[in-house]
Design a protein around this nucleic acid. Structure first.
Lengths: 217, 217
DNA sequence: TCAGTATTTTGAACATGTTCAAATACAAGC
DNA sequence: GCTTGTATTTGAACATGTTCAAAATACTGA
């Protein structure tokens, strides 16, 4: 695992060969497959370990944060900080959107990690005083998780010096997000809320389509 | 090309081998590489042809549409209709987010297609009467293009019967989008507009970071 | 100490995307 | 019809992720 991470960091995921990793680790090629199912599995293992290490870190850091903004900043900043030395490697993970692909952040294989990650956002919303229309509130943690994924994705491929673009993106979108949450209650936006609620139901719930309002086919 | 598309449709992109394609086309394996640089290039060629065929189709269909809503519906519906028989194959295209990957919708290689596609959205915005704050208006076509990409991505992996989920997603997000455009002018949202403008500058402009407001490092 | 079993290690073999030197087909000029 | 240069075709060879049967090693209980 350490050998793999080393070579990945030096040559990138794609250009690293399993034979290189084996040599680096001082074993035969086949030995790597005794401990890791595939080249992808190496990244998965790294991802899992990362999640675990960040969890302990974050639980400590989050006790003093009260507002949703502070909590979100803490969570997401932790990700950036932790992954910074392996930013390139993260590309191997986030490069696949296909939920069928084992390495996809939406796959069955990454579900445990995803669920653990989601807990942070559930905790961040809880007792934060944020109040949304009841048809939207339950989806907020999942939406925030996806917001985070988008940010990380942008960051992974951000080629501006020091990933300055991501900084601006993070700062501005977070402000816009919080502003939106604050505005969500005003009567003018009632139609928007209704649409959003139905949308989220269709996107997230398994039985949503049975009762969805008819649409022109 | 036809041989490839046939086998792709039958067995999927991943599980199709170049040797199969060659056999199907009645040539040697190497011959395929004389006409197509790679397996990916076959998908690219399909993508390019699709764009071209849809262009002529769409130009005809769009003459009678005046409102932005009607135009967007027409453009995006055309995509769904055209790609429906090859929905699975589109997964090979959209599976890669990495802008370095040739098949990514954001890669250098797909830029011509992307630019051609963008023209539809530029045309859709033009003379549609939609008026946005001037710091946002220039980015609207690109935002709409990305909106479309998101929809298509969702659709490609939508496993609900008849891709019903995507229908709801399309309908509701489009309504929300238009509602947002209509609301964008009200004074209450002035701070939102400012944030959005700066954000878009940072995301899209090459020189944006030089003048961006300072952020905590 | 040792036979027997479980675990670990090995390297050859396989599948598949891709490359390439050689063979073949073809067209133009005479 | 022959020559010559270009375009096309071929199939073997290569790189790399992966599998697997056999060998080596570690471990266990008597």
């Amino acid at each position: 695992m350490d050998a793999a991470l080393g070579v990945f960091r030096e040559h990138g995921f794609e250009r690293t060969t399993m034979r290189q990793i084996a040599v680096e680790a001082g074993v035969a090629t086949g030995a790597a497959y005794y401990y890791f199912d595939s080249k992808d599995a190496l990244v998965m293992a790294f991802y899992g370990r990362a999640q675990e290490e960040m969890r302990t870190d974050l639980e400590a850091k989050l006790v003093c944060c009260k507002t949703l903004e502070a909590r979100l900043r803490t969570i997401i900043a932790e990700k950036f900080e932790y992954f910074a030395p392996n930013r390139g490697l993260l590309g191997a993970l986030s490069a696949h959107i296909d939920p069928e692909h084992p390495l996809s952040p939406f796959s069955e294989e990454t579900k445990p990690i995803r669920d653990a990650d989601l807990k942070f956002f559930e905790a961040a919303v809880k007792d934060s005083g944020v109040k949304l229309p009841r048809e939207i509130q339950p989806y907020l943690p999942r939406l925030l998780w996806m917001y985070q994924m988008g940010l990380i994705l942008f960051w992974v491929y951000d080629r501006s010096p020091g990933q300055r673009r991501t900084e601006v993106l993070f700062d501005h979108t977070l402000k816009m997000l919080l502003l939106t949450l604050r505005l969500a209650g005003i009567p003018l936006l009632r139609p928007m809320n209704r649409l959003a609620g139905e949308l989220l139901r269709a996107a997230f719930e398994d039985d949503a389509l049975d009762h969805a309002p008819g649409l022109p086919r």
